[in-house]
């Protein structure tokens, strides 16, 4: 008979070492995950709370994964079959009601907390815009977007999206053919452009600069190339740009063909 002292009960000392390793590995894991540069730049008012929510999810998730892997590695290290144990069986443990209750209730609490957080954040993001918010009509087609808005000089239609900084905007998203998806990664929000209905979301751009507009729903052979840009500018430059675009388009009436939301 070979030495079987390793098959004895797990001592308190073992537990302390195991838990300490889980804690250390979790901390290292969390630091690593938070140090990674996950998101694109924060271009809208909803980006910071969504990015913070991601951090919370990471902080909750890493220890769960670390614990699962650590318990398995510990089991393998401690109890793997050694020479001479070929005919040995483990102890006939069939279960433990106490443990099963614990690992049903604890995840339930974690899930309840996370969904509550997510629901509150979502209600915030979904909140209807104030009356009089600037409306931009986003029209998807194979394989380009066009954007329509109401400038003081009349309706303006453009291939690039221009937005004034720090001013709420509501997007009315429509499609001319198949489903597309209007996504600005820097803004964090997206919605499908669905033939037959108008979908919407609203946000406030908070950063000057030019960001990618990406089609996120497979729309055919040009899908990969359906990438445009949005430029967020100061209110003065925005007004000048709109006036310039309206002039270039000639008669405002002709440009209003798409039916601009009032």
């Amino acid at each position: 008979m070979t030495d079987q002292s390793h098959r004895g009960a797990v001592t308190a000392k073992n537990w302390i070492v195991l838990l300490a390793m889980i804690v250390v590995a979790s901390v290292i894991g969390i630091i690593f995950m938070l140090a990674l540069n996950w998101f694109p730049e924060q271009g809208s008012d909803v980006a910071p709370p969504i990015d913070t929510f991601w951090d919370v999810l990471v902080i909750v998730s890493v220890p769960i994964f670390v614990a699962v892997v650590a318990m398995m590695l510990f089991s393998i290290w401690r109890w793997r079959q050694r020479p001479g144990e070929e005919d040995l069986d483990g102890p006939p443990i069939h279960g433990s009601t106490k443990l099963e209750v614990i690992w049903t209730i604890v995840p339930t609490i974690v899930i309840a907390a996370l969904t509550t957080y997510a629901a509150i954040l979502l209600i915030d993001i979904q909140a209807a815009p104030a009356k009089g918010t600037r409306v931009v009509n986003v029209n998807g087609g194979q394989f380009a977007w066009d954007f329509e808005t109401q400038a003081p000089s009349g309706p303006v239609k453009s291939e690039r999206l221009y937005l004034p900084i720090n001013e709420p905007v509501k997007f009315n998203v429509r499609s001319k053919d198949v489903i597309h998806d209007f996504w600005v990664p820097a803004f964090r929000l997206k919605v499908d452009a669905v033939p037959g209905i108008t979908t919407t979301y609203n946000l406030t751009p908070t950063k000057l600069g030019t960001f990618d507009v990406v089609c996120a729903e497979l729309c055919g052979l040009g899908h990969a190339y359906m990438r445009q840009t949005v430029t967020v500018m100061t209110a003065e430059r925005y007004a000048a740009k709109m006036a310039g675009l309206a002039k270039a388009a000639g008669t405002p009436v002709a440009a209003a063909g798409g039916g601009v939301g009032k």
């Binding site: 098959r7 797990v10 699962v68 318990m71 398995m72 089991s75 393998i76 109890w79 793997r80 079959q81 144990e85 040995l88 069986d89 483990g90 102890p91 443990i93 279960g95 433990s96 443990l99 099963e100 690992w103 049903t104 995840p107």
Partner: peptide, 17 residues
Amino acid sequence: GIKIFSWIATLWRGVLK
């Protein structure tokens, strides 16, 4: 989660081949 935890508990103190 119940399944994952139960599998780990199945490994615990077994003779793992």
